[in-house]
Amino acid sequence: MLKISHVSKTFNRGTINERRALTDIHFEMDKGDFVTVIGGNGAGKSTLLNMIAGVYPIDCGTIFLDGVDISRKPEYKRAALLGRVFQDPMLGTAADMQIDENLALAARRGRSRGLSWGVTKKEREEYREKLAQLGLGLEDRMTVKVGLLSGGQRQALTLLMAALREPKLLLLDEHTAALDPKTAAKVLELTEEIVEGGGLTAMMVTHNMRDAIHIGNRLIMMHEGRIIYDVRGEEKKGLTVADLLEKFEQASGGTLDNDRMLLA
């Protein structure tokens, strides 16, 4: 499904602020894989997701998604194949537009936008059902501006929008990190429902090691722009937080430093 070969990225090349963010990444994912991504500060987790999404151009290498070479496509064109949820709940939705309008924008991802109505009556009924499944009561507030919703509600909505057109790959970049623990748990639960229920392929960056172990079928650990540990299936399910810390020390020769990492 996803095939990344020889991808590297250096920011501010040739200046005093030069920073190597990704070093010769090779990575493949099968259809239906749900990969969690962990790592210390500046390990390249978010950069990896941003490179796949096309936020910045890659310096070298290729990225294939579902057999399509997306290495040099602009962000808005790759969006046809991707669903994305960001760490900041403000980033994924248009605050000045209504809930149904936001969903309608997402429903047209990858299609040409013409002069027919931005939201149709038929769509609204469909959205009402989908929103009801979130269990947040948003189905009765479809004409409310998204800016009036809470962070958790906006994140749940973004998740629904990301999955609306059945993306080839869902990219979740610490999408529960800015939420309070209770809301984060709820959004995470929704994430599992949507990914597993829809049979989606997904990558989720998280700073919660326990979530990283319990969610998905595969886990990768990154350090200084490289993937240093890759585990899947039964072996992954049997991991403990202590195992992960040990693996990290073995592979990197140092202790894990992530100021937000939850070890518990």
Partner: peptide, 10 residues
Amino acid sequence: SNENMARSQG
């Protein structure tokens, strides 16, 4: 309203 959102929605 939100350029980031607009791009990520294609």
